[in-house]
């Protein structure tokens, strides 16, 4: 079938609607998983060993099981086991994504924090700074600089992972395209790549910009 201008426009608009949801899943996951990851990383670095072990086991499970499976678990398990008023489809996706990404982020944070030399803390201490002053004024910006490259990798992966939402029938761009495929229209599926590439392209530029901004110091 030939692609006419009008069909192209119609498909574009429909895909954009799906893409809106893709962006929403992306943004919500990011905004919630970034701080939750920090909490988890503090848990895994805790001096209270049982908490540290428990957190590490949890992170191991979350990182060791496919995200798709986790989406199923969050959506189906509460209603099958306990007959709970379970999450809506969309919320189940967000919950599964946030937990999954928070665990990945927590490991990145942990690596970043543990990589800061002891001397930085000690220099702050002998200058009479408090523990929280040392963390927020000395350590944090060094951690940020260290974690930007691995974080940008994870965040770019997240863009593409949003496509998993469709396994429990949540609408996003690829789901919309699949509906066309079901009607024997194949090109919209390939066309979605343009949207993903544009999104990832913008993120790549953004991270490049941030890295350049932080180029004035070395850690």
């Amino acid at each position: 079938m030939a692609i006419t201008w009008s069909s192209f426009l119609k498909v574009t608009l429909r895909l954009l609607e799906g893409f809106e949801n893709t962006c929403l899943i992306f943004a919500l996951t990011l905004v919630l998983a970034l701080p939750l990851g920090l909490v988890i990383s503090f848990g895994s670095m805790s001096k209270f060993k049982p908490l540290a072990y428990l957190t590490k086991v949890f992170v191991w499970i979350i990182r060791g099981v496919p995200l798709m499976l986790q989406v199923f678990v969050v959506f189906y398990v509460p209603r099958l086991l306990w007959d709970l008023p379970a999450f809506s489809r969309f919320n189940a996706v967000i919950v599964a994504f946030v937990i999954n990404y928070a665990c990945y982020f927590s490991e990145i944070y942990r690596g970043g924090i543990e990589g800061i030399p002891r001397g930085q803390y000690e220099a702050g201490e002998v200058l009479g700074m408090t523990k929280s002053q040392i963390f927020f004024k000395v350590i944090l910006m060094q951690v940020v600089k260290r974690i930007i490259p691995p974080m940008s990798n994870e965040i770019i992966t997240l863009v593409k992972d949003t496509a998993l939402a469709r396994v429990i029938m949540v609408v996003e761009i690829l789901k919309v395209a699949e509906e066309y495929t079901a009607h024997a229209l194949i090109w919209p599926m390939f066309y979605t790549a343009v949207f993903y590439l544009a999104f990832v392209g913008i993120l790549t530029l953004l991270f490049g910009f941030i890295e350049k901004k932080l180029d004035y110091y070395k850690v």
Binding site: A123, L127, K137, M141
Partner: peptide, 30 residues
């Protein structure tokens, strides 16, 4: 501890701050 100052073998300057800021950070916080 502020009765003592310590200069480390490995300097331990704060890399994200300028020389001036390295000197003024702790006194200003205080």
């Amino acid at each position: 501890r502020l009765r003592f100052g310590l200069v480390f073998q490995s300097f331990n300057l704060f890399p994200q701050y300028s020389v001036m800021e390295n000197l003024t950070l702790a006194p200003k916080l205080r």
